[in-house]
Design a protein around this nucleic acid. Structure first.
Lengths: 219, 219
DNA sequence: TGTACATCAGTGAACGCGCGTTCACTGATGTAC
DNA sequence: TGTACATCAGTGAACGCGCGTTCACTGATGTAC
């Protein structure tokens, strides 16, 4: 059984991460301060070094958590064996957007300006494509259009990429998945930054328009 | 004629902005430091306040310059009255990517994580959509597909938006322009952050695949 | 061309601030016999 | 159950650092008559 100490440890770590997320929301990645977190938890700055080996270590955890949380959300939205694959795909991309809109600062932690000097460890990089592979699995069940004018060079790269992500899908499917991912990201990213606000355009409707193109198979 | 002082003034301002861009490239927006810029120019920190009323003022100039530079680049790539509109559109979106890849930090200044506490002035907001309106003008010359399943709500918003940007294009055209803009941004943004690096996929080829879908009119 | 004055560029000291990280140390909690 | 020891949490002082911004001031450049 887990010791009292171990339980307390993980609670304390979690509390620190929660406060860090609040700081992230309030003042961006640069606003995350070890000393300020400690103060809010009622302890002194150096005490936090019992829980995180450095500020970068804390950041890494936030990023890893966010990638996994996003991927879990997308996967959950796409579950259901009997459902129409097109509906599942739509649901997943809507979940992608909902996740970003619910926590813009977290979205931007993953897909905004990289934190200067920060180097992502390997397992973070793997987590980063979990959402993408989930898309590929569903798109694989979709009736695909003939792959027009395909670039053999790109197909080769995609064929090499698939197995490294545990995928057995065709390059054409993986390409559709990447384009679905990138174009959804294009809308969500600009929405999360507020770029549509002065335009008076509802980004949810833009995403729906995008979904039509994605599902129709032209991408 | 412009006085010697005025000329010197604008040269000094420009030099400061150039150094700020170097700092941006090296350490992100937070790395832009008034004192450090002044030191590199061989003067003391407070002297720069003759040229910029605050750090935010400097940032605003960098952002405005970048938006206009990007829009100029895109417009230039699309010029040519006799050319096939589809070719012009492709050229513009390729220019969009080339601009971002050439100066990732500048791209991220516009489309990355917003600088905390920074408020964009009105003319910056106008500059932000110059590239988009250029796209709309060319797409308007494109043979458009029938507008499938259109959302009347979105069309209404687009109809209201067009005149504020000096456009007389239809909602369907403006929608295509926005989707072209957002999906190109989706690829470029992830490339500029290096998200494709560990995947072994050439983003230039991804953009080409995206261009096929955009030009074919499904978006 | 010469003088008197206004404008502007830049200095240096100072303000108050917060940052990440290290170190030696105290006191509490847990473990082994 | 009691004692001896190891582990761990947290403190407080200190290190060295850079930041944006203000202010009163000096000295150079430009302008008007």
């Amino acid at each position: 059984m887990e010791s009292r100490r171990a339980r307390y440890r993980s609670e304390t770590r979690q509390e620190a991460k929660d406060i860090a997320l609040e700081q992230l929301a309030a003042a961006g990645p640069a606003g995350i301060s070890v000393n300020a977190i400690a103060k809010r938890m009622g302890m002194t700055g150096p005490a936090l070094y019992r829980y995180f080996s450095s500020r970068d270590d804390l950041l890494t955890e936030l990023i890893r958590d966010a990638y996994h949380d996003l991927a879990d959300t997308i996967e959950a939205a796409g579950r259901g064996d009997g459902r129409d694959p097109a509906d599942r795909l739509r649901a997943m991309l809507r979940a992608f957007r909902a996740w970003g809109v619910a926590a813009p600062h977290r979205y931007l932690l993953l897909f905004g300006t990289p934190v200067p000097g920060y180097q992502a460890p390997d397992d973070t990089i793997a987590a980063a494509t979990r959402g993408l592979t989930a898309l590929a699995d569903v798109i694989d069940e979709l009736p695909g259009p003939a792959d027009r004018a395909s670039s053999s060079e790109l197909d080769g790269q995609l064929a090499a990429l698939a197995p490294t992500r545990g995928l057995t899908v065709s390059p054409a499917t993986l390409k559709r998945a990447i384009l679905a991912w990138t174009s959804a990201h294009g809308v969500i990213s600009l929405e999360v930054q507020g770029q549509f606000d002065p335009m008076g355009v509802d980004p949810a409707l833009l995403l729906e328009a995008e979904l039509d193109a994605i599902v129709s198979g032209t991408r």
